[in-house]
């Protein structure tokens, strides 16, 4: 067989391979965009109403809790706080007294009103 007859299919094969990899990159970019859009819309939906107790709780959360629980409260060093089923009283007690060796106590730093605002904010975080 002449070399020219073999080169054309090889070029086509290499181009097909490259096309396949471009397909992978394009699909990956597309699904990353879809994921980013869905995360953005989810965080917009979760944002508490302006002027509400929950909004104040959100600010308090960023200042005091986000360091361990993550800015989106999805968990980091501390657990994910979305869809917490614990009672308000129990959450208030945990925030004020902390958990020995796991979470600091905030009773010296946060007032009862602050704790209430934090709980209002936590209740806006759906699973």
């Amino acid at each position: 067989m002449k070399p020219s007859l073999e080169i054309k299919p090889i070029v086509l094969g290499v181009l097909s391979s490259l096309g396949a990899l471009v397909f992978v990159l394009a699909a990956s970019a597309f699904f990353q965009m879809v994921q980013a859009a869905s995360t953005a819309s989810a965080s917009l939906a979760e944002r508490p109403a302006v002027g509400s107790q929950a909004e104040r709780g959100n600010t308090l959360f960023i200042l005091n809790c986000a360091h361990c629980h993550g800015a989106d409260a999805r968990g980091d060093e501390g657990p994910d706080l979305h869809g917490v089923a614990t009672s308000d009283r129990r959450i208030a007690s945990l925030i004020k007294n902390g958990i020995n060796g796991e979470m600091p106590a905030f009773k010296a730093k946060l007032s009862d009103d602050d704790v209430h605002a934090l709980i209002e904010f936590l209740r806006t975080l759906r699973k």
Binding site: K8, P9, L12, G13, S16, L18, G19, A20, V24
Partner: peptide
């Protein structure tokens, strides 16, 4: 593997 399979199929469908 994916690139190879597509490339080989392209090559073979011509030859």
């Amino acid at each position: 593997t994916f690139g190879l399979v597509i490339g080989l199929a392209g090559w073979r469908s011509v030859v």
